[in-house]
């Protein structure tokens, strides 16, 4: 059963899921989170579907119910439909995901489970498939969403389950 939230969210309903969450009570960081969040989606070389694969894999690994339930509309528009989302789970290597999509998951798992330089084979696969800028973008995508989801879990009050919820990128 879900516990109580450890922090009260602000009394605002701006429609911005970051501003209206508990993160919104620290104005000094909110001023940085909002433009960083938008930049993660808009300013890097990976497309929204690729970002969403890494985000959802992180959500599964951290066990963030909220993060797992969310679907970003721009990722769906970029081709990440629900049948593909279902392949991001444990048996992803045997799934119909493309080799590039599987490498996104493999890199995410490396970051989360064994932070260190990847083994030579994975390193070569990543370097063959992605540009240096794409790998840097993927790194910061995982770092950003991992910190975000850990914070969400630690703040408590997470329900045991949530329905799939489509949202736009908060800006």
């Amino acid at each position: 059963m879900a516990g109580a939230a450890r922090v009260r969210a602000p009394d605002s309903s701006t429609g911005n899921v970051i501003r209206d969450s508990a993160l919104g009570i620290v104005p000094q960081t909110l001023a940085h989170y909002l433009p960083l969040n938008a930049a993660i989606w808009d300013d890097g070389p990976l497309n929204a579907a690729e970002i969403e694969i890494a985000r959802l894999r992180n959500a599964q690994q951290v066990g963030c119910v909220l993060c797992k339930a969310v679907r970003y509309d721009i990722a769906i528009e970029a081709g990440l439909h629900e049948d593909k989302v279902q392949m991001i789970g444990g048996e992803f290597e045997l799934s119909a995901l493309t080799p590039r999509e599987k490498l996104i998951i493999a890199f995410t798992d490396q970051y989360l489970n064994n932070p260190g330089v990847p083994a030579l084979q994975l390193r070569r696969q990543l370097q063959a498939e992605f540009t240096p800028q794409e790998l840097l973008h993927l790194s910061l995508v995982v770092a950003y969403f991992n910190g975000f989801s850990r914070c969400a879990v630690a703040l408590g009050g997470m329900p045991d389950e949530m329905p799939r919820t489509e949202i736009s990128v908060p800006r």
Partner: peptide, 11 residues
């Protein structure tokens, strides 16, 4: 990675 890297550093 301008636009992202500098914002991450800014945070």
């Amino acid at each position: 990675l301008p636009g992202i890297g500098d914002r991450f550093e800014g945070l």
